[in-house]
């Protein structure tokens, strides 16, 4: 698999305060890379550096295998679409005119305008001035602009911000289809864990400018082993048995919580409880959510 984005020791400071620290980002081709972190974690700053909108204080950026600098920035970004923070548009131009202008700038045939309008379901409103668009429509217009020219890489900074639930769902499903439909690689940032969980194939967790985790989403879930919740006829006695067996049970919500167990150990637990005439009333595996994982990684919850 080719690496589309690779950063090495990327740093950015504002007034001697580090916004991004020593970031080594790797985004593989065809992936949807979820860039996750609370507000102010440095996601937008990183994206701006990737697009050359902010100058890194240190480090290097490679996009499509080329080290980006002031001279080759525009040619590299020619194969990139972006939507950073809020959507960009000319309010006095219609949606279609906005896209025609972008097509001219990207040197893309005007015929593609119709295509991207239908991808984002804006055909019906293409003759309306962008200033009269709802925020969701503006966001979709921004995405249509980013899709023009079928770029190989799409950078979307909080694309669902400000959208209503239906709009969020629509944007999410649209992003999910992009790699298969157009062969794009997507880097999408969000402060919403559930969103990344539903969209991404890979995830990078950023907090206070530092990359805490970077791998596939499944690897993230695997690394956070599920807990076992057991509710018995005598939890107090069961707890003592578990301690004798070498476990460290905790008691939460009227059940004993144990770290993940192998099947053989769980069989042993069942046998011991049966021998002591303790009945198992309920047993459940507690899948750790991304929230729990984030809490585990950062030591604090996500805002």
């Amino acid at each position: 698999m080719n690496t589309i984005i690779r950063t090495k020791g990327l740093c950015k400071s504002y007034h001697q305060k580090a916004a991004v620290k020593d970031l080594d980002l790797t985004v593989e081709q065809g992936s949807i890379y979820g860039f996750l972190g609370p507000n102010g974690a440095g996601k937008s700053t990183t994206m701006k550096m990737l697009l050359g909108l902010a100058k890194p204080s240190a480090g290097a950026i490679q996009i499509f295998g080329k080290t980006m600098n002031a001279k080759n920035r525009i040619s590299i970004l020619g194969n990139t679409g972006s939507l950073i923070e809020s959507p960009s548009y000319y309010g006095h131009l219609t949606g279609e005119e906005n896209l025609k202008l972008l097509a001219s700038m990207k040197q893309v045939p005007e015929a593609q305008v119709e295509e991207v309008l239908s991808v984002v379901h804006l055909n019906g409103a293409k003759d309306k001035k962008a200033t009269y668009y709802s925020f969701g429509m503006k966001q979709r217009l921004g995405l249509a602009g980013a899709l023009l020219g079928n770029p190989s890489l799409l950078l979307l900074d909080e694309p669902t911000n400000g959208l209503d639930p239906a709009g969020i769902q629509e944007m999410r499903s649209l992003i999910c289809t992009l790699p298969q439909r157009f062969g794009m690689t997507v880097l999408v940032s969000s402060h919403l864990l559930s969103e990344i969980d539903q969209m991404a194939t890979h995830v990078g967790i950023l907090d206070q400018g530092e990359l805490l985790f970077q791998d596939s989403l499944s690897a993230l879930h695997e690394s956070s082993r599920p807990n076992l919740r057991i509710h018995t006829t005598n939890d107090k006695k069961a707890s003592l048995i578990f301690k004798q067996m070498g476990f460290a049970p905790s008691y939460e919500n009227q059940s004993l919580v144990l770290d993940s167990l192998s099947d053989a150990r769980l069989f042993e637990v069942g046998k011991q409880l049966y021998a002591q005439e303790i009945g198992i009333l309920r047993i459940a595996e507690d899948e750790a959510s991304l929230e729990d994982i984030f809490l585990k990684l950062t030591g604090r919850s996500l805002s």
Partner: peptide, 10 residues
């Protein structure tokens, strides 16, 4: 229209 950041990529 907050267009400058988009224009700078083009």
């Amino acid at each position: 229209g907050d267009t400058i950041k988009q224009l700078y990529t083009l």
